[in-house]
Design a protein around this nucleic acid. Structure first.
Lengths: 152, 152
DNA sequence: TCCAAATTAGTTGTGCACGACTTAATCGGG
DNA sequence: CCCGATTAAGTCGTGCACAACTAATTTGGA
């Protein structure tokens, strides 16, 4: 596109800087670190915040569907949900129509937390320092990559 | 750029799908999952693979400089390096000229592993299914984002 | 010279993340 | 109507990831 990088990437390079992967891994951790002080205010970790985002969008969801939405295993979600429950942000109740399934529902405190969380996306969007076009393009590429890498 | 998404993103949206962050978090985990079977063959986890990449590039590096390269704390690296040492892939020795510092060096087995690892970047690059231009662009955006987000 | 500040690794505690497994409930073909 | 297969949630063990802290060493003034 523009000028070539100092070290041009070659196929099969083992150079750290050439690996898109590492850029992804580093970016993900850097962003999570940025969230941390904001979410500390709310008493949430980043994965817990993601769960709350889903619940604010759609109250009452099964652990299974939550796992689908976030691409997380029940072995990750079960303890996480237990922690959110003991924080008083949600309730878990077995579904009468299918006793295998567990419905996750917001508590009043969980629903109220939504208002306090409204400033978070703005602050993060600000810290990212990308133009709206760059955000759109990055999202597009990441979703494409995730889709390609996930299937098969 | 092209057609607007079904749900146009608005400033401060709490919708999961609008969050670049989540796309990043999901992409990072999906890629790591793709690496897993390949790295299992080598007896490495993904963070351990990153350490080996650095060592293959530059033998003998301090824990401090390794932390700088990978953006990881000593509290993450110390146990990880201990595991790699007990796998026989590297050695740790205190630097005589500064007893605070520990030099990480490849063992013969660690150096030999490099050859077996050569196919990994190709296989991953293939699975990503992006054009070289898309890889370059994604890398550029991610490094920009990381830089913006990291310096406060 | 000396000692307070800085630097380097490492430890501890908490919370993901996932594979392998377990338990309980439901489904479905014979 | 059964019983084997499937599905849902959860447990357990391992390995990151990071904040807060500790211990050992070095550094750099006063």
């Amino acid at each position: 596109m523009s000028a070539p990088a100092a070290e041009p990437a070659e196929e099969g390079s083992l150079l750290l800087g050439d690996q898109l992967c590492f850029a992804l891994y580093a970016a993900s951790r850097a962003l999570t670190a940025r969230y941390r002080p904001l979410l500390d205010e709310l008493g949430l970790t980043y994965p817990q915040y993601l769960v709350m985002l889903v619940l604010w969008e759609q109250d009452s969801i099964s652990v299974r569907d939550l796992g689908q939405a976030l691409q997380l295993e029940s072995s990750t979600l079960s303890p996480l949900l237990k922690r959110l429950e003991s924080s008083g942000l949600l309730r878990r109740e077995r579904r009468p129509e299918d006793e295998r399934s567990v419905a996750i529902r917001l508590s009043d405190a969980g629903a109220r937390l939504r208002d306090r969380a409204r400033t978070v996306p703005l602050a993060i969007g600000d810290a990212m320092g990308l133009t709206p076009e760059q955000v759109t393009e990055a999202g597009r590429l990441l979703r494409l990559l995730t889709a390609n890498v996930s299937d098969s």
